[in-house]
């Protein structure tokens, strides 16, 4: 018997009598994936509802008309983000759906789904909110034309720089994550000869 055969034998003998979950537990667990997706969706939708309520209030109560329009645009942008979240969540596949797929094909599909979500974060998450936020922040200055905008208080520009830096940071972090996943996908493609 070769050394690797001896290790294989020891490995296979290491769990000879497994404790199997009972059928009721298995059946309950079978819904876990769907429950997890529903729970995650509920949290994300609740966050969207919170933003919609706040900015709807701004759209009604803010003194400046331009700022009210901006708040309304943020509400619309948030609804677009919620729709995109729903679309991305529906792309998640239940675990058993990949039964007929080779393991690396499944792994690649999982990684590609996550990479695409991260790489496209500007389009589906940041962009829908930018116009409304811009109009809200520049609103008071815009009401007095281009000259008013040029003479807008420094605090507005500081706020704009802060928001731009935050958005850029979110975008950069996501791009880095997407690049890391892309590297893992490339590794799989090298292993499968690009058949996936």
């Amino acid at each position: 018997m070769s050394d690797s055969d001896r290790v294989r034998q020891a490995w296979q003998a290491s769990v000879a009598d497994p404790v199997l979950p009972d059928l009721a537990t298995v059946r309950t667990g079978a819904d876990r994936f769907y429950r997890r997706v529903r729970r995650r969706n509920a949290v994300e939708y609740a966050a969207c509802v919170f933003v919609v309520i706040c900015f709807s209030a701004y759209a009604v109560f803010l003194p400046s008309v331009t700022m009210r329009i901006g708040a309304l645009m943020v509400v619309i942008g948030t609804l677009v983000v919620a729709w995109q979240l729903h679309r991305l969540a529906s792309a998640a596949r239940p675990p058993e759906s990949a039964a007929a797929e080779p393991i690396l094909v499944h792994q690649r599909a999982e990684l590609a789904r996550q990479r695409d979500a991260l790489a496209g974060v500007f389009t589906w998450y940041l962009l829908p909110l930018i116009p409304g936020l811009l109009v809200m922040m520049l609103g008071p200055g815009l009401e007095h034309g281009v000259v008013g905008l040029l003479h807008a208080p420094r605090s507005i520009w500081i706020r704009m720089i802060f928001v731009a830096a935050t958005f850029t940071g979110v975008w950069l972090l996501n791009q880095r994550g997407a690049a890391r996943l892309g590297k893992q996908i490339d590794d799989i493609d090298a292993l499968t000869g690009g058949k996936t």
């Binding site: 675990p95 039964a99 007929a100």
Partner: peptide
Amino acid sequence: QEIHAALWRSYGYFEGQCSERSWVYR
């Protein structure tokens, strides 16, 4: 438990597409 749950669900549409061993391992 998650693997067993996925396995239980998969028997809703396993019709001998491959050997049972391949199916379970995949």
